[in-house]
Simulated scan of single mutants.
Amino acid sequence: MSSGYDVWFTEDAGEFLARSGEHLAHDPVTGTVVTTIAQRIRDSGRGSLAHCWFAVVTGPDGAISGIAMRTAPFPPHPVYLLAMPDDAVAALSAAVLARGEDIGGATGLRPAADLFAAAIAHRTGRQVVNGVHHRLFELGTLVAPRPVPGRLRPVRADEAEHALAWVQQFFADADEQAGRLAGHDGEAAAFDIDDVRRKLAEEVLWFWEDAEGRAVHLIGANPPAYGVSRIGPVYTPKEERRRGWAAAAVAEVSRLLRERGDRVILFTDQANPTSNALYQALGYEPVVDTVRIDIV
Rank of each mutant, 00 (worst) to 15 (best):
D6C: 00
V7S: 00
T10F: 01
D12P: 09
G14R: 13
F16Q: 08
F16H: 08
A18K: 11
G21V: 06
G21M: 05
G21P: 14
G21A: 10
H26D: 14
H26G: 04
V29T: 10
G31L: 03
V34A: 06
T36L: 02
R40E: 15
C52E: 13
W53Y: 12
V57Y: 01
P60G: 14
D61V: 03
M69Y: 10
R70P: 06
R70G: 03
P75H: 09
Y80Q: 13
M84T: 11
D86I: 03
A91V: 05
A98L: 04
E101C: 00
I103E: 14
G104T: 05
G105F: 02
T107G: 05
L109G: 01
P111M: 05
A112N: 12
L115E: 08
L115R: 15
F116D: 08
A117W: 04
A117M: 07
A119Y: 06
A119K: 12
R123A: 14
R123T: 11
R123G: 00
G125A: 13
R126K: 11
V128K: 07
V129I: 13
V129F: 01
H133Y: 04
H134M: 12
F137E: 13
F137P: 05
L139H: 13
G140Q: 11
G140K: 07
A144Q: 14
R146Q: 15
R146N: 13
G150H: 12
P154Y: 08
R156A: 15
A157M: 07
A157T: 15
E159R: 06
A160F: 08
A163C: 09
L164I: 05
V167M: 10
Q169W: 03
F170P: 10
F171E: 09
A172T: 10
A172C: 04
D175H: 09
E176F: 00
L181C: 06
G183S: 12
F191Y: 14
F191E: 13
I193W: 07
R198Y: 14
A201P: 08
E202T: 02
W206D: 06
D210T: 07
D210F: 04
E212Y: 09
G213S: 14
H217D: 15
H217Q: 15
P224E: 05
P224L: 01
V228D: 08
I231D: 04
T236L: 08
P237R: 10
K238A: 14
R242Y: 00
R243H: 14
A249N: 12
A249C: 11
A251F: 10
A251Q: 13
A251C: 11
S254N: 04
R258N: 06
E259F: 00
E259P: 06
G261Q: 09
G261C: 03
D262L: 03
V264R: 04
L266P: 08
F267Q: 11
Q270E: 15
P273L: 09
L278H: 12
Y279L: 05
Q280C: 04
A281Y: 01
G283K: 10
E285C: 02
D294F: 05
I295Q: 13
